[in-house]
Design a protein around this nucleic acid. Sequence first.
DNA 1: CGAAGATACTTAACATGTTAAGTGAATGCG
DNA 2: CGCATTCACTTAACATGTTAAGTATCTTCG
Lengths: 152, 152
Amino acid sequence: MRDFSRSLPMSLLRAREAVMRQFRPSLRAHGLTEQQWRILRALAAIDAVEVTELARTAFLLGPSLSRILRDLDARNLIERKTAKADQRRSMVSISEKGVKLMASVAPSSEAIYAEITRRFGARKLAELQEMLGQLELCLASSDAGDEITDNM
Amino acid sequence: MRDFSRSLPMSLLRAREAVMRQFRPSLRAHGLTEQQWRILRALAAIDAVEVTELARTAFLLGPSLSRILRDLDARNLIERKTAKADQRRSMVSISEKGVKLMASVAPSSEAIYAEITRRFGARKLAELQEMLGQLELCLASSDAGDEITDNM
DNA sequence: CGAAGATACTTAACATGTTAAGTGAATGCG
DNA sequence: CGCATTCACTTAACATGTTAAGTATCTTCG
């Protein structure tokens, strides 16, 4: 069997960890985890979203998101209110305090990203992301175990 | 600020999740998590290793590994014994039962990997892994925040 | 209308990620 | 030798990943 340290899952895991290791100290200094930061960034780009849509955007599972939103709400970094039309839906938005926190983190975050880009090369980075996107696409909505059946 | 869904960390996260989604059902059917499988695979390749070395190989943090080894030991999938020369060190090896479990999981695991390779293309896969390795290397042992100082 | 089903989210339970602190054993050095 | 330091690992505490079950609301259709 293949040397598993050279397998695709391990390559992806190590690469991502190498990248995140750069960001974590800065986020931690601001009292944020990687996932909390993802949520704030997703919220900053829009006015308000439903929880399900936010989960899709921030790439978090529902249960994780529920817990994190509870925490962010308790810290007054976000605001929530149930939708008028559908009482099941909860609309989430970033608060004033959340915006300020983002503003304080963004500079170092941007700097770190720029440094990574500089080291790896902007062109290569674009190529890498293109390939990652293709990989994701070619595995989308189908298990490699059972074939795609587009006629059922 | 950059659309964070197109950032490198998110690209890597989504790509890895797309890949792991293929494997998880099979592993789960055999009562193994991704991390437990990594450990068994790492152990299968060698005779016995220290915990610290195993953590490096399986790319797990010490505390996670401690817990998982406790569990795998309770399930008799591995064996442990303290080193003679140094009582601090614990030597870990895969058990007979562990080897059998691996043998029962390996076929479907191999098949899934082969299918991923077929879909994405063997050449592209090699290129992708090459780039991931370079990325990892160019970020190794240094924070993108503070420059490398190789003269201290 | 009203019961069955679907939907949006939350809770629960267990496994791992992550950092800090703890424990016991080896090492270095005066 | 003896004691401070280092080392290998474990435990603790909290946050998230993952699957299953639960809750409230909405929709559908007889």
